[in-house]
């Protein structure tokens, strides 16, 4: 591993100034991805800026505008917070799946998002909960709907010197349920061969789905939404047949590759199974 400089500023302003300097500067919001990438020469850095000491990036709260997750908040904290407050079941589930307990304690949801792996476990949950990425750089701030945040495997729309400041998720209505499931050959310490997050809002008087959000992991260069499946489900009375049809439509949004973790055909099949299972869980949660 080539040498690099390391800074751990305690204010957002000084972090942004450091990151704006010339050279290849990388933020670290846990380091469970970036340290490994540096060690194995998959990424380079002249300067690593540790964000873990900046108070506003470590803040997690729920208020009138929704759930605010600072970009350096660990997966464990997000899991504990969302488990206690409720309303974001898929996020609570996915933050407990990332890597291992050690990685969840150190790694952040913001880091998982910015690492932009197509397989990232927290991203489908954030997408179905309609997260908005609030970014900051020395030249100002931006708000980007998370679905527009990814540019390719390992790539985001963040510009040089720009970091993710926080993720904001609107509070779902009471008649909403969400779930995330991924498929891995083992039971832990693994990367999703395929993952599906599903969210449905159901009108209890009619049993009609008023909102459906389905997001897929590991089946495209970026995490994707299954729009056709969502559109079909919205306005439909949800039952086993509707779930099967939705699952078939979700497969159509998957454009997977064949690699060492699974064939394209198998991944499509997994999308069908996981969509069916997550929607079934949502229904159980609404009952």
């Amino acid at each position: 591993m080539p040498n690099f400089d390391y800074e751990a500023p305690t204010s957002l302003m000084s972090a942004l100034e450091l990151l704006a300097q010339p050279g290849e500067n990388r933020p670290l919001a846990g380091g469970t991805d970036v340290i490994d990438q540096l060690k194995s020469n998959r990424r380079n850095a002249d300067l690593v800026v540790d964000l873990k000491r900046i108070p506003e990036l470590l803040n997690i709260e729920s208020n009138g505008s929704g759930l605010h997750v600072g970009s350096a908040v660990s997966c464990t904290e997000v899991h504990n917070f969302t488990t206690e407050k409720g309303g974001f079941a898929a996020l609570a589930e996915s933050t407990e799946l990332v890597g291992s307990v050690h990685i969840q304690n150190r790694g952040s949801v913001g880091g998982n998002v910015c690492n932009a792996a197509p397989s990232a476990d927290t991203i489908p949950s954030l997408l179905i909960h309609e997260a908005v990425a609030h970014t900051a750089s020395a030249s100002g701030e931006r708000e980007i709907p998370l679905i527009d945040f990814f540019a390719g495997p390992g790539q985001t729309v963040l510009e040089k010197g720009e970091i993710l400041k926080e993720l904001v998720l609107p509070t779902p209505s009471a008649n909403t349920a969400s779930a995330y499931l991924r498929f891995i050959p083992r039971n832990e310490m693994d990367i999703a061969v395929a993952g599906v997050g599903s969210l449905i809002e159901v009108d209890p008087s009619t049993n009609l789905v008023t909102k459906a959000r389905i997001a897929l992991a590991s089946v495209a260069p970026t995490p994707v939404r299954a729009y056709a499946a969502e559109e079909f489900l919205e306005g439909t009375k949800i039952d086993a047949d509707a779930i099967d049809k939705t699952a078939d439509l979700a497969v159509g949004s998957a454009v997977p590759i064949t690699d060492v973790r699974g064939s394209a055909e198998y991944r499509k099949e997994l999308i069908r199974v996981l969509t069916r299972r997550t929607l079934t869980i949502c229904l159980e949660r609404l009952a």
């Binding site: 050959p185 083992r186 039971n187 832990e188 310490m189 693994d190 990367i191 060492v260």
Partner: peptide
């Protein structure tokens, strides 16, 4: 050891 999968305790 990510993709050469030895069983973990949870398996």
């Amino acid at each position: 050891f990510l993709d050469y999968r030895m069983p973990t305790a949870l398996d």
